[in-house]
Write a protein that binds this DNA or RNA. Structure first.
Lengths: 209, 209
DNA sequence: CCGACCATGTAATATGTTACATGATTGT
DNA sequence: ACAATCATGTAACATATTACATGGTCGG
């Protein structure tokens, strides 16, 4: 059900078209939730049928139709009820870790490549999230500006605080992943020093029997 | 496709029934991959049709049938090819963060409850993962013992190393989440001190207009 | 005029959850 | 006997990915 609330949340900042939402889920918000347009358009219809949002058709240029959806009071109630719920932790699915723990079949070089790619991915991610976080702190993030427009200083500060907490957490996660992978690479070096040229992959051994 | 490889990986340690796999995915391995029996049984059939595993029927007691699946050489090749691939990072979906960033609509008390639940969840998780990690390091983890049985000291050490790296990473992630949430709780205290009784939820304000 | 982008949809397939369904074994 | 656990499946539904499909606008 989270797609539904990710959409409602975005619309609680400003009315948007499906296309806009798809872009949001690909940019800043994409670190926390992503969805493709093929998932968004049908969901918007369902939300409208449920009375949680209301669409209006506008035209761009001469003929190009655009449906802009706004959240309704009912929709806002639903959203508030959802965010107030205790978090529900879903079962974990971590393909990278599965790859890693079964990589004893593939050997140290494969693990090294895996960990190096891990560092690379999270360095990029950390930098991008940090950039967004800094924009927010500086009060220059367009959508956050939109969200706090017309609110009291206390509300303004509260919105900013929550965003900073969320983005900081993501930056820290990325930093952890980088540090972890680098430590793992050093442990791998240590392993190779100790067992030089004896660490052949198990599967190769099996294949050559 | 990861369910497929999570199963192949588990079977590369020892032949198992669907029921056994479902249990594995609920226990230790469940931190990295989980699946329910209704997903496992059909997947086992598909893996068998693809020639990656081979099932044999045994009987428990008088009548109770049990299908035990073993990985085939083709299956092992497939698994090795998969773990050797660079990691493929899937789009993020983090319902808790979505809840948090839109919680400016619900107020500080709601956020406090959210963060406290977060700490509670990750403390439990950290303790459980750490326990498993310690079992592995001590050489007392039954399935890891099974996996390294008959291997050279170098291979043995390599398997152990990878498991330690993986489980350590999960413990560290949990510790990060705990520290992050506790810091966020302090920041929330600070906020409340500063804006005492002005921090009413935005949605309440909207409702009472 | 043409390429990048705006804009909205559907279809087929893959993946994952919850509920329904059945029956045997083991230990107390 | 009875409860907990072993053991295997299907069905309905929800969620997510990839591919197919169409056409308009805007700036250079």
């Amino acid at each position: 059900m989270s797609l539904r609330y990710a959409i409602l949340g975005t619309l609680s900042t400003s009315a948007s078209s499906g296309y806009d939402l798809a872009r949001q889920f690909g940019l800043g918000l994409g670190w926390f939730w992503s969805a493709s347009h093929s998932q968004i358009y049908p969901e918007l219809r369902r939300l409208e049928d449920a009375g949680l949002i209301e669409g209006s058709v506008t035209t761009v240029g001469e003929k190009l139709e655009k449906r802009v959806y706004a959240i309704t009071p009912t929709g806002l109630d639903e959203l508030v009820a959802w965010v107030s719920q205790p978090p529900q932790y879903r079962p974990n699915r971590d393909p990278e870790r599965i790859q890693l723990i079964f990589s004893d079949l593939a050997g140290a070089e494969s693990v090294r490549r895996h960990l190096e790619a891990h560092v690379e991915y999270y360095v990029r991610r950390r930098d991008q999230v940090r950039q967004t976080r800094d924009l927010i702190s500086a009060g220059k993030h367009a959508r956050v500006q939109l969200r706090v427009a017309g609110r009291s200083p206390a509300e303004h500060a509260f919105t900013l605080l929550l965003r900073e907490i969320a983005y900081d957490g993501d930056v820290e996660r990325a930093e952890l992943e980088i540090a972890w992978a680098q430590r793992a690479l050093r442990a791998l070096d240590e392993y190779e020093r100790r067992y030089r040229s004896q660490g052949e992959p198990v599967a190769n051994a099996a294949e050559t029997v």
